[in-house]
Amino acid sequence: QLYDAKAGGWRDLGMLDVMQIFGRAGRPQFDKSGEGIIITTHDKLAYYLRLLTSQLPIESQFLGSLKDNLNAEVALGTVTNVREACAWLGYTYLFRRMKTNPLVYGITWEEVIGDPSMGAKQRSFIIDAARSLDKAKMMRYDEKSGNFYCTELGRIASHFYLQYSSVETYNEMLRRHMSESEVINMVAHSSEFENIVVREEEQDELETLARKACPLEVKGGPTDKHGKISILIQVTVEELSLFSFSLSPGTFLS
């Protein structure tokens, strides 16, 4: 099992992780064969056996990051309109699984019967993502022509791997006149930091850092999740040393 910070608990190792680990056994240039051993509880044994024998298919998670990936393609110039975006989506594992197991992706059997090629649903996914990106000002989408035009914000988000949800947060919180403390607090609300949690054993050091090492006001204080992130950002900029392992810049920035 692995600890999932987002879920706040332990979860089973996924089949993709298992296959990645097994793939390290028996490299062709060194060995003629390789062995992989799964050590698990008896109640999980049937689950992993079904996965290993491909009885349980691996589904795509691409829909959750479609906006970010579409923005990246538009920023690169490889996708310039809805037609090209649909062709691009047609090469993904998501599209293959949509045709094989449509119910998982919110596609009804009525839609499958009316559109066996999934062209309409494919176009619908792209248009929904394009409208969201246009609303976030990450690109411009011309409804009439179907053309995409990259914006500077979208290009920055693509180059620096900023998630669409973070840009949405910036658009909501950004104002014409903001103090440096408010800017750092806005950055602290980025979705990239969603797995950061406030731990009890860190409180003393966070309070000391907020009081003595942070030149700017810490919104929310050290007991608040976003306050903790604000402290760590300031400490990282100031290049100060940290004692708690979980607070070290390497752990935080990763």
Rank of each mutant, 00 (worst) to 15 (best):
Ser158Ile: 03
His226Asn: 13
Lys137Met: 03
Glu239His: 12
Ile58Gln: 06
Tyr161Gly: 06
Leu162His: 01
Asn69Phe: 10
Phe125Gln: 09
Ser117Tyr: 05
Leu232Gln: 11
Ile127His: 06
Ile39Pro: 04
Ile229Val: 15
Leu103Ala: 04
Gly119Trp: 07
Arg27Leu: 13
Glu207Gln: 13
Glu194Asn: 15
Val198Asn: 10
Gly221Asp: 03
Val74Phe: 09
Leu216Phe: 05
Arg24Thr: 14
Glu152Met: 07
Gln122Phe: 00
Val112Lys: 09
Tyr164Ile: 01
Ala213Gly: 01
Thr40Ser: 09
Leu232Pro: 04
Asp224Phe: 05
Ser33His: 12
Leu56Trp: 04
Val197Ile: 15
Phe160Asp: 04
Arg96Ser: 14
Leu206Pro: 07
Arg211Asp: 02
Ala7Ile: 03
Asn147Arg: 13
Leu216His: 05
Phe243Asp: 02
Leu162Ser: 05
Val197Asp: 11
Val79Arg: 02
Trp109Thr: 11
Gly250Cys: 06
Ser54Ile: 07
Glu172Ser: 15
Ser246Cys: 11
Gln1Asp: 11
Ile38Gly: 13
Asn81Ile: 05
Val187Trp: 06
Gly9Ser: 12
Ile184Ala: 13
Ser60Arg: 05
Arg131Lys: 12
Phe62Tyr: 13
Phe160Pro: 00
Leu247Ser: 05
Leu16Arg: 13
Cys150Ala: 14
Ile58Glu: 10
Cys86Met: 14
Ile39Leu: 15
Glu205Phe: 04
Glu111His: 07
Val237Gln: 08
Leu162Arg: 04
Phe62Pro: 00
Gly114Pro: 00
Asn81Glu: 09
Asp115Tyr: 02
Gly14Leu: 01
Tyr91His: 15
Ala188Cys: 12
Glu73Thr: 13
Cys214His: 03
Phe243Trp: 02
Asn81Gly: 12
Lys228Cys: 13
Leu63Gly: 02
Lys121Ala: 06
Glu110Met: 06
Leu162Lys: 05
Val82Asp: 00
Glu201His: 11
Glu201Asn: 07
Leu51Ile: 09
Thr92Ala: 08
Asn185Lys: 15
Gly9Leu: 03
Ala46Glu: 15
His159Pro: 00
Arg131Met: 10
Phe95Asn: 00
Asn71Tyr: 03
Ser190Gln: 09
Arg131Ser: 08
Glu84Ser: 12
Tyr141Asp: 08
Phe125Thr: 00
Tyr161Leu: 12
Asn71Ala: 15
Thr169Leu: 07
Tyr149Ile: 07
Arg50Leu: 14
Arg155Trp: 05
Asp31Thr: 02
Pro28Phe: 14
Phe95Ser: 03
Ile39Trp: 13
Asp17Phe: 04
Leu49Asn: 15
Ile196His: 10
Lys32Ile: 08
Arg131Cys: 12
Ser190Leu: 09
Tyr47Asp: 13
Thr100Gln: 09
Arg155Met: 03
Val218Glu: 04
Gln163Val: 00
Pro249Asp: 10
Leu51Ser: 11
